[in-house]
Amino acid sequence: MDLFADDTRLNPIPIEDGELWFQQRLALDLPPDEVMRRLLAETDWREEQIQVWGKLHMQPRLSAWHGEASYRYSGKTFHPQPFTALQLHIKQAVERVTGRQFNSVLLNYYRNERDSMGFHADDERELGRNPAVASVSFGAPRTFILKHRRLPKTVKLALGDGCLLLMAGALQSHWTHGINKERTPRGPRINLTFRQIHPDF
């Protein structure tokens, strides 16, 4: 049975120790290629320096932080830029589908197959317990990988143009996720991960 046969709603993906939901195409009144073009043009992309295992590294991708609250990860505090009109439009569509509320978004721009995301969990204190993180992708597909922290289990998902992935429940406590570099040439991709930041935590 094709779990993703119905692309008009959020479909559950069976997974242990957490919740994982997927929608093939988020309903927007703009085609994905137009969203991609505008995100590229309207975002102040930056190559950030972060701390990993006590050492400073340049992130292998470009990023931007927008919304209503600051966010700290990898030894660096990111102060938000305001939501753009397009980001708010996407956020509202995500909130309608997921039934969750979000006040911030991290945008990542993968320029080609050499850009990547190291394995990590979105488990920072200001996200609260069992956070919901909604991920929307535009552009060339990339393989999203989840690895269980304790069990020998791995889940791989092809995140394509316009798709929505929701991670929720205890998933961030039990799984890490990332995107590897690839040998096959890949075009540009933009990913938006919407979060609810609790500044007082």
Rank of each mutant, 00 (worst) to 15 (best):
H79N: 07
L3S: 05
E34D: 13
S137F: 08
I197H: 00
W21F: 12
L151W: 05
R61T: 15
H198V: 03
E47S: 15
A158L: 09
P31S: 09
L127G: 07
P131N: 08
I190K: 00
A158S: 11
T176H: 04
P31H: 06
R96W: 06
V94T: 00
L39Q: 01
D6Q: 07
L20R: 01
F194H: 06
T176S: 09
G178E: 02
A168T: 06
V133I: 15
Q49K: 13
V52A: 01
A158G: 03
D6C: 08
Y109K: 02
T98W: 09
L146Y: 10
I13T: 05
W21D: 09
D161G: 04
I190T: 02
A41S: 10
K156D: 06
M36L: 14
G99T: 08
D161Y: 02
G160D: 05
D6R: 03
R125Y: 03
D44I: 13
A69K: 02
R37L: 12
I179N: 03
V155T: 09
G128N: 10
H57A: 01
A170W: 06
L159Y: 04
G118R: 06
D200C: 12
H177M: 04
L166V: 12
W45K: 00
D200M: 11
P32Q: 03
T98G: 05
E124D: 08
Q49L: 14
L20F: 07
Y71C: 13
D115V: 07
F102D: 01
Y109V: 05
E182C: 14
T8D: 11
D122T: 12
T98L: 09
I197S: 00
S173M: 10
A85W: 00
R9N: 07
K156S: 14
R9P: 05
D115Q: 09
P60H: 13
D29N: 10
R9S: 14
Y73D: 03
S173I: 03
V52R: 03
T8V: 08
Q81W: 01
D33R: 11
L26S: 02
I190G: 01
Q49N: 13
N112M: 11
L164M: 04
I145M: 03
A140L: 09
P141C: 09
Q101E: 12
W53I: 04
K156H: 09
W21Y: 13
R9K: 12
F4Q: 07
L164H: 02
E126I: 12
G75P: 00
G160H: 04
P14A: 04
V97H: 01
W175T: 03
Q81S: 13
L56E: 11
R186E: 13
L106S: 03
L164P: 02
S135P: 00
A134T: 04
W21R: 07
A27M: 08
C163W: 06
W65N: 08
R195M: 11
I190P: 00
G75K: 05
N130R: 11
L26Y: 02
P32V: 06
P60Y: 13
I145C: 12
L157R: 00
K156F: 04
L3V: 10
L40E: 08
K153Q: 15
L157S: 00
R142I: 13
R100F: 15
L88V: 05
Y109A: 06
G128S: 13
